[in-house]
């Protein structure tokens, strides 16, 4: 087996591990980060399959923008930081 096949097997098994662990994490922030790493792994898989267009788009959209939007959503729905925000506003 040459290096490409070994690399493919490692990457695909990491993909499966990422996908399953997103479901089983208790907190939301680590889940979003694992999701972003899933996208990055997928980007490398696309390069191994010789499609650079897809790799660029996957990196920009999956790991970049959709990850950012998820983090933004988490910020909007987490109410526990509210007290700290109120204090900070009163200080400024």
């Amino acid at each position: 087996m040459d290096i490409k096949e070994i690399l493919s097997i490692i990457l695909l098994s990491l993909l499966i591990i990422c996908a399953i662990s997103v479901n089983f994490t208790k907190k939301l922030l680590p889940a979003v980060i694992i999701f972003m790493s899933y996208s990055s792994l997928m980007c490398i898989v696309w390069i191994l399959m010789e499609s650079p267009d897809l790799a660029i788009t996957e990196a920009a959209v999956g790991a970049g923008i959709s990850g950012t939007l998820f983090l933004m959503t988490l910020k909007k729905i987490e109410a526990e930081d509210r007290k700290r925000d109120e204090e900070n506003i009163q200080k400024n």
Partner: peptide, 13 residues
Amino acid sequence: PGGGFSGGAVLGA
């Protein structure tokens, strides 16, 4: 390689 969608996504980022 590239094109409209990839370029636009990078610009947006």
